[in-house]
């Protein structure tokens, strides 16, 4: 589903002493099938933004369009449930939402709420546990007996079982160890491609944004600061430094090489091995002129 924000603003507790404007004048478009990363500091409005994607919040100004559904301040969306089924959200530390007696029941909870029949739920359960790599014999166990990493996977499976078309991920790897982080991100990327999803990833990791996203939106103080292809956005050193964001490490390093050696070296999304090759040629090549 296409996503579009037009001049969206959201203010918490308006007209009280606690009034707080979380996002304002926010406009962007994401076409169906895109993997988009949303990057910005804590407090830049990322989590307010994503809560608009499945109607948990309605803009106080402007309009949000997800596929055929429209959210605006003046009217309530009648098909809210429909929207929530089609847009799955994996919140930060999703294992905190587990509550059922067994893993299987917890995975079934979402689809059952949306009226999916038992046979279909069963079929989906087997599919999703495979995707998140949870062995079948855990299905009848209590989710609270599992390890932290397994609980995270079960919670994700519960969202995937809704078979959403848009998948919203709010820092899905927070707190996991390096291998866990990579496994989970690779899994989301595979699903994104196989199921032709529209994926919205909120992340603090510039590396993940660079590695997985087709499009990056950078938020600062509640509004869009920059957007574009990762390889283009992340080389704008001065602009990013201005909002205290780091460059991905590989790009930082390339800049340092340029500075120290005076070489021209551009980041085009090359693999580490290609970069090493280029560096080698530059070091030896420069030598030939001496």
């Amino acid at each position: 589903m296409d996503i579009s924000f037009e001049n969206v603003a959201y203010t918490y507790q308006p007209k009280t002493p606690f009034e707080h404007r979380a996002i304002h004048d926010l406009s962007f478009q994401v076409s169906s099938g895109t993997f988009v990363a949303i990057v910005g500091h804590t407090g830049s409005g990322k989590s307010t933004l994503i809560q608009h994607l499945n109607g948990l919040l309605r803009p106080t100004q402007g309009q949000v369009t997800i596929g055929d559904y429209q959210l605006s301040s003046d009217k309530k969306l009648k098909e809210m449930k429909e929207l929530r089924r089609r847009v799955g959200v994996v919140f930060q530390y999703p294992e905190h939402q587990l509550f059922e007696e067994t893993v299987a029941k917890d995975i079934a909870f979402g689809p059952a709420n949306f009226g999916v029949d038992q046979a279909e739920i069963k079929k989906r359960t087997y599919e999703v546990i495979q995707a998140v790599q949870i062995p079948e014999d855990l299905l009848e166990r209590s989710p609270f007996d599992l390890s932290g990493g397994q609980m995270r996977r079960v919670a994700i499976a519960g969202v995937l079982a809704m078979e959403p078309e848009v998948l919203v991920l709010d820092e899905p790897t927070a707190g996991l160890d390096p291998r866990g982080q990579k496994d989970i991100m690779d899994m989301f990327y595979r699903l994104h491609q196989e199921k032709n999803l529209t994926t919205v990833l909120v992340t603090h990791s510039m590396e993940d944004a660079l590695h997985y996203a087709d499009h990056v939106i950078i938020l600062d103080h509640g509004t869009k600061y920059m957007e574009g292809k990762p390889a283009e956005v992340f080389v704008k050193k001065e602009e990013l430094n201005k909002v205290q964001l780091d460059l991905p490490e590989v790009i930082q390093f390339i800049f340092k090489v340029e500075e120290k050696f005076g070489f021209r070296l551009t980041y085009r999304g090359q693999e580490l091995s290609e970069l090493a090759q280029e560096l080698k040629e530059l070091i030896r090549g420069a030598d030939n002129h001496e």
Binding site: L56, V89, Q97, F109, G110, N113, F114, M162
Partner: peptide, 30 residues
């Protein structure tokens, strides 16, 4: 948590009282 469960299709605000009471379980347990 209530936002996470609402995203999984729980409706805390409408529906008959019995259903709304049931909707509290997925909130209270976590």
């Amino acid at each position: 948590i209530s936002k996470a469960q609402a995203s999984r299709g729980v409706d805390f605000k409408t529906g008959p009282i019995k259903e709304r009471l049931q909707a509290i379980v997925p909130l209270l347990v976590p």
